[in-house]
Design a protein around this nucleic acid. Structure first.
Lengths: 151, 151
DNA sequence: TATTGTTATACTCTATAACTATA
DNA sequence: TATAGTTATAGAGTATAACAATA
């Protein structure tokens, strides 16, 4: 196996591991990765329409309706009237939702701590340098993201 | 943002990008990531029972029934009788399935080429070193994989 | 006309439970 | 008894299409 194959193997393995761990962790707040992604957008942008959220996640309006339904059920957000556009709704944190979102941010910092705390700066910088290079190559090859990362 | 947060951000972004790209690419052969995972196991182990596949992917027997149904529909595999256990079936490549699986392997090599070709050995090794370190920390923290990686 | 969001419908992956056939 | 795989049912995320209300 070449070094390139080894590197790809490690990246795929890490993806699966991180994804599984996040899925487990999010389930405690009745969240999924898609629903959590919505929470992150709300943290960054404040109350926004479902249209904005659908574009941010790269999903259809129908899908967003379903995702928001679940977040409302869980008590994380409410649908508020838009002040000027009566077609639209403003997806807005409840107090509980805002608290959960803050916890998500803390969890993410804690997770970064687990992954990197005490790692020699040289190695950490080498990792970031390699990842940035790979990301640049992907974009150059036309692999563009359909949705933004949240972190 | 600390270096650790930056690194986690890059890893998550890369995960999403690679996942989206693979999903698009697999769809051309009527494959999904789960179905492709089955193809990889068959390449590595030859014909195996659905039970073995379910354990390899970490899914229920019911889920495997559905996944194999689709692979059979697409003409990638057949269900053959097990020579000694009449309860079991041996999931076996069709000629076409074997050809598609070989193409998947070539695609993976090509993908690794896109990601890493021409990258300075020092940087590539730094990337692998960092990834290995992160993987070791994850395992130390009790984040174990529920299913094997295939590559 | 164009846009926001919903209802209707469907497909994929996932699960548990009940069941058949076989070990 | 236990195991392999299926049928039945359900829930998650995803989609398109038709439609309502509004811009």
């Amino acid at each position: 196996m070449s070094q390139a194959d080894t590197a790809l193997d490690r990246i795929l393995e890490l993806s699966v591991l991180i994804n599984d761990d996040m899925t487990r962790s999010l389930a405690r707040d009745q969240l999924t990765t898609s629903r959590a992604h919505i929470m992150w957008v709300l943290v960054a942008q404040g109350p926004v329409t479902q249209r904005v959220l659908a574009d941010a996640l790269g999903v259809s309006a129908r899908t967003m309706t379903g995702l928001i339904d679940k977040l409302v059920e869980a008590g994380h957000v409410t649908r508020e009237p838009h002040p000027t556009d009566r077609r639209a709704t403003l997806v807005t944190f409840t107090k509980r939702g805002a608290r959960v979102a803050a916890a998500l941010q803390r969890d993410q910092v804690e997770f970064a701590r687990i992954l990197f705390d005490g790692m020699p700066a040289k190695r950490l910088n080498g990792l970031i340098e390699g990842l940035d290079d790979v990301l640049a190559r992907l974009r150059a090859a036309g692999v563009s993201r359909s949705r933004e990362s949240h972190a």
